[in-house]
Simulated scan of single mutants.
Amino acid sequence: MSIHRAIVAYYGNDLGKHHRYRSWEHCYSYFQRIKPDGLVANRDQAALQLAFYLASWGMYRGSSFLLQYAYTVHRRVIDLVAETCFDDLWKANFGESETDGQLIPQVSELITGIRQAYEPFVAANRSAQPTDTLITKIILGTCCCLPACDRYFVDGFKSEGFKYSYLNDYFIERVLGFASSIFQNSVRNR
């Protein structure tokens, strides 16, 4: 079964333009349209976009430290993704190029930076560190170089014979390899 058919089988053909599953599209489109240069000037708007997408994708549930904070908790993350050291992540369609493996250190640095951006809020709330799910949903909604490592993805990834224990370089490498193989197959089948 193709990825597209699997998605249609799960969600149906018509979600409607106001369905909560569309919030990723709205968030990602906003970040791609405004680009890193515009994020600094529109920091609060970007934080609001990110917050609403994360809320509609389940990241503001009762156990999350985010539930205790306003959208402003995301400002440091917005500043982070706007940094020029991550420009290549914004430009790449992760998995399309044979040189994408060179981006793994940048993805890892972004992951570390996101964890650090939330540290003051996590510590003040005596909460666990930001989860891999939260971090990957942020990356998916902004520069889109990783899938959201929620239970649906992890279960699917494992069912295809891949291992997942936590977010690290080895996992990023496996995802990149999988994305590259899907891309190469789609090019061959055109």
Rank of each mutant, 00 (worst) to 15 (best):
I3Y: 10
H4L: 14
A6C: 10
V8M: 10
Y10F: 13
Y11H: 14
G12C: 06
D14L: 10
H19S: 04
H19I: 01
R20L: 08
S23R: 13
S23H: 10
H26Y: 15
C27Y: 00
C27N: 11
C27K: 04
Y28V: 09
I34V: 13
P36T: 11
G38K: 00
L39H: 05
L39K: 02
L39E: 04
V40F: 06
R43D: 00
A46E: 07
Q49F: 10
A51E: 08
Y53G: 03
L54T: 02
S56I: 08
G58Y: 01
M59D: 13
Y60D: 12
R61M: 12
F65W: 07
L67I: 15
Q68D: 14
Y71M: 12
I78A: 00
V81E: 03
E83M: 12
F86E: 00
D87W: 10
D87Q: 12
L89Y: 05
K91G: 07
K91P: 01
K91W: 02
N93Y: 04
F94W: 03
T99C: 09
T99P: 00
G101F: 06
Q102I: 13
P105E: 06
L110R: 03
L110P: 03
I111R: 07
G113Y: 07
Q116H: 14
Q116N: 15
A117D: 07
E119P: 12
F121I: 03
V122S: 09
V122W: 03
N125F: 04
R126M: 14
R126Y: 09
Q129K: 11
P130D: 04
T136H: 02
L140A: 00
G141R: 02
T142N: 06
C145D: 05
C149I: 10
D150R: 05
D150S: 07
Y152D: 14
F153L: 12
F153W: 07
F153G: 01
D155A: 15
G156W: 05
K158Y: 02
S159W: 00
S159G: 06
F162T: 04
K163Y: 13
L167E: 07
D169F: 01
D169K: 04
D169L: 08
Y170L: 14
F171I: 08
E173D: 12
F178N: 07
A179Q: 08
A179K: 06
S181W: 06
V187M: 05
